[in-house]
């Protein structure tokens, strides 16, 4: 049986169908389910082997990207979601889904971190990082290269070496850890699963240098494009691998370029979902 995959539709998400198709091509059995169906008990999260939070503008992103979705996840799904994660089942957040996972404290979810202490108000979330406005100050849609990081526990990037080429489409994608210690811990534990990279042939020429705009499209710290939790089963990224799963989506297909698909991320996730049970 193909592993059932829940594509979570929050009011305002809009890349649900592409994410579903990517999961289908990767060998899963996706179903697009609205938050309301989970909240009403029409569907049960634990009946699925993998959870995908797709891109879009959940609830309009009016209070900050993914902010209200994060609230809905914590207050609406709360324990169920924690149990799903604790069971080791894979969770993938793309773009708005990534923003929601980070703001809900599910990524990077470093253990033993003090809650934010510099606030005069009581924090009810253990938010350790954020995705804030692009350095350019505007929404940008452009194709980027992502280099899988060896040594990351991320189940979605295991064994991947070839860069992934896919579009970003966001205005708030700059990854910022809440402080230096957090960033250091994220790096030390290998939680950076994908980094923005230069074009492969250009990368060799300038391997030692940092990755500047537009290769790093938003100014993310340490060129971080995607992070996972320490267990490696929760993973989020700003770019859209689901928009490059067949060769003719490549922007230079007419020039004979191909490869660097985003599909392997989904293949890894679905395979892991089938195994973890």
């Amino acid at each position: 049986m193909l592993p059932p995959i829940l594509i979570l539709h929050a009011t305002g998400t809009n890349r649900d169908r592409e994410a579903a198709w990517a999961c289908e091509l990767a060998g899963g059995a996706p179903e697009i389910v609205h938050m309301n169906q989970l909240l009403a008990g029409e569907r049960r999260l634990m009946d699925y082997r993998m959870l995908v939070l797709p891109g879009g503008f959940s609830y309009g992103d009016d209070l900050g990207a993914g902010k209200l979705w994060a609230v809905a996840l914590r207050h609406g799904l709360g324990d169920g979601l924690e149990a799903f994660v604790a069971a080791g089942r894979p969770v993938l957040g793309i773009c708005n889904g990534f923003q929601a996972l980070v703001k809900a404290g599910l990524l990077p979810a470093l253990r033993d971190m003090e809650p934010l202490s510099n606030l005069s108000i009581s924090p009810s979330t253990n938010q350790q990082a954020t995705l804030t406005r692009n350095d350019s100050g505007r929404f940008e849609c452009r194709w980027v290269y992502l280099q899988p990081q060896a040594g990351s526990p991320c189940v979605f990037t295991q064994g991947l070496h070839e860069p992934i080429y896919c579009p970003v489409a966001h205005g708030e994608g700059k990854f910022v850890a809440r402080d230096k210690a957090t960033l250091a811990a994220i790096e030390a534990q290998g939680l950076v699963a994908l980094r923005y990279a230069r074009e492969p042939h250009a990368a060799e020429a300038a391997a030692a240098e940092g990755v500047e705009y537009p290769w790093n499209p938003n100014g993310s710290q340490n060129d971080i494009a995607g992070v996972c939790n320490p267990a490696g089963n929760v993973f989020g990224l700003m770019p859209h691998p689901e928009d490059h799963i067949v060769p003719h989506q490549h922007p230079r297909a007419h020039r004979g370029e191909h490869g660097c698909l985003g599909l392997p991320l989904f293949v890894n996730g679905v395979r892991y979902a089938a195994e973890v049970g």
């Binding site: 194709w143 489409a169 007419h254």
Partner: peptide
């Protein structure tokens, strides 16, 4: 201007508004 518009969502844009070696 074109980059401020999401021209990739839905995954079906096979000839894109920006084309060529440098996209």
């Amino acid at each position: 201007v074109v980059r401020q518009y999401d021209h990739e969502v839905q995954g079906g844009t096979v000839v894109k508004p920006l084309v060529g070696a440098g996209n």
